[in-house]
Simulated scan of single mutants.
Amino acid sequence: MNNTTLESLSNELLLDLFELFDVVNLLRAFSGLNTRFNSLLYTDVRSYRVDLRSISKEDFNILYPAYLPLISNRIIYLRLSDDEDTPYQCIYFQSTGFTLSRFDNLRSLTLNNVSSDLNLNQHFFSDLHELHNLTNLKFAHCRLYHLHVEDFRGVIDQIWSLPKLTHLYWDFTFKYERHFLIPTCLSTSLQYLTIRNYNCCSYNFSRLFEKTPRLRKFSISSDSNEDDDLPISREFLPAPQSLSVTRLILLSIRSLPLMTSLFKLLPSITRLKVEIYSITLDGHQWKEMIVNYLPQLRDLQFKIDLDLCRSIDDSTNEDKVDQYLSTYRTSFWIEHHQWF
């Protein structure tokens, strides 16, 4: 009878086995056993993915001083979280003095539920510009109510200066505001941009696209009620910088001028997903907008929440619904695009 031990396994099998462990348990179980395991962990394992969303403070205290300095240059994915399972994690991370710049091979960074704490300030993000290999950056549900958005101007410029960044997800709320500051520098790499919960003005979009000339997909959610009918001025005409955008996602849109301004700026859109509220648009009006502003559109998904003036008479309500739907029963929708 053969008795198989860990020592008898090949290095290849051990490396496959290591992938089944989270970082803390892997290092706690195998680090320091002998020189072979140390060599595998600190030389042969080429990359680590560190997700700290559910780590206890006790485990973090073990990870930071004993192991993190040894693997920091091979961490390609890092996720920090201040949610209810790991409160004040970012504060604690900052207090250790271990800065983001130590992760010089980081490819993906996610900061989740960063809390509004006076001990956490913009200096926590001050090393972002040193993450030269970063391709994906995500700020999810971050609420810094003690800071003004102006305090983050330098951080935004750092992000736009990252040489390899292609994906950015931005969900921040600051003190009294949810505005997104337009960067002052040009991004030569950013292609996919999502901005959540954004109170914005239409004229900012042209400036944003000017600073993001390689943008391919733009996604935004906004509850702005901007209702001024902005004219088509020079700054709203399509610029070469905006012609690269072919995919557009609009969520929670409540302003028709805001949506129309984006359509005017992005005539090369081929795929559109839109969710609108309190805006009454029928099939004829949609057709006019598509023909005038989105001539290259191929794929369309939209959800409309509207009030068709409900009355007491149910049959009248049904007639109004049928009348509305009939505006989509035309050759434009059924035959030409096959969208209805």
Results as ranks from 00 to 15, higher is better:
residue 136 N to D: 14
residue 65 P to A: 03
residue 119 N to V: 00
residue 92 Y to H: 08
residue 130 E to H: 15
residue 116 S to C: 11
residue 94 Q to W: 08
residue 122 Q to L: 12
residue 123 H to N: 15
residue 97 G to V: 10
residue 77 Y to R: 03
residue 131 L to Q: 08
residue 111 L to N: 07
residue 63 L to S: 02
residue 118 L to E: 11
residue 71 I to E: 03
residue 101 S to L: 13
residue 137 L to E: 01
residue 99 T to S: 15
residue 125 F to M: 11
residue 105 N to Y: 06
residue 131 L to I: 10
residue 98 F to Q: 06
residue 91 I to V: 14
residue 100 L to Q: 09
residue 71 I to V: 05
residue 128 L to V: 13
residue 143 R to E: 12
residue 132 H to S: 09
residue 111 L to R: 01
residue 123 H to Q: 15
residue 149 V to P: 01
residue 71 I to T: 02
residue 71 I to W: 07
residue 136 N to Y: 11
residue 101 S to D: 14
residue 116 S to D: 10
residue 72 S to P: 00
residue 92 Y to I: 09
residue 128 L to D: 08
residue 107 R to G: 02
residue 129 H to T: 13
residue 79 R to F: 02
residue 78 L to K: 04
residue 84 E to F: 05
residue 66 A to P: 00
residue 149 V to E: 14
residue 143 R to S: 13
residue 125 F to S: 11
residue 134 L to Q: 04
residue 133 N to A: 00
residue 144 L to P: 01
residue 138 K to I: 09
residue 119 N to R: 12
residue 99 T to M: 14
residue 72 S to G: 00
residue 88 Y to A: 09
residue 126 S to F: 13
residue 100 L to T: 08
residue 121 N to W: 02
residue 107 R to C: 07
residue 89 Q to N: 03
residue 120 L to T: 05
residue 74 R to S: 04
residue 97 G to S: 10
residue 103 F to M: 08
residue 94 Q to I: 02
residue 100 L to C: 09
residue 82 D to G: 04
residue 97 G to M: 05
residue 132 H to R: 03
residue 138 K to E: 10
residue 123 H to D: 15
residue 119 N to A: 09
residue 140 A to Q: 07
residue 138 K to D: 06
residue 85 D to V: 05
residue 76 I to N: 08
residue 69 P to A: 06
residue 117 D to G: 00
residue 68 L to R: 06
residue 145 Y to D: 07
residue 64 Y to I: 12
residue 95 S to D: 09
residue 92 Y to A: 05
residue 118 L to I: 05
residue 133 N to K: 04
residue 134 L to Y: 04
residue 117 D to W: 05
residue 137 L to A: 04
residue 75 I to N: 04
residue 122 Q to G: 07
residue 117 D to A: 07
residue 139 F to I: 09
residue 117 D to L: 04
residue 99 T to W: 11
residue 69 P to E: 10
residue 111 L to D: 11
residue 135 T to A: 04
residue 71 I to C: 05
residue 112 N to K: 08
residue 146 H to N: 09
residue 143 R to Y: 13
residue 85 D to L: 12
residue 150 E to Y: 10
residue 132 H to Y: 02
residue 133 N to M: 02
residue 111 L to K: 01
residue 81 S to M: 07
residue 116 S to K: 03
residue 104 D to W: 01
residue 68 L to S: 03
residue 132 H to W: 01
residue 120 L to V: 15
residue 80 L to I: 07
residue 105 N to G: 07
residue 129 H to W: 10
residue 135 T to Q: 08
residue 135 T to H: 10
residue 99 T to I: 14
residue 134 L to K: 03
residue 143 R to H: 14
residue 93 F to R: 02
residue 121 N to K: 14
residue 79 R to C: 15
residue 91 I to D: 07
residue 79 R to A: 14
residue 116 S to W: 01
residue 119 N to T: 00
residue 127 D to G: 14
residue 67 Y to K: 03
residue 70 L to Q: 12
residue 104 D to S: 14
residue 81 S to R: 04
residue 65 P to Y: 02
residue 142 C to A: 12
residue 146 H to P: 00
residue 97 G to I: 07
residue 113 N to M: 11
residue 108 S to K: 12
residue 101 S to E: 15
residue 114 V to E: 11
residue 85 D to M: 06
residue 92 Y to Q: 05
residue 86 T to R: 14
residue 148 H to L: 12
residue 67 Y to F: 15
residue 66 A to H: 10
residue 124 F to Q: 04
residue 129 H to Q: 14
residue 148 H to F: 13
residue 76 I to M: 01
residue 129 H to V: 15
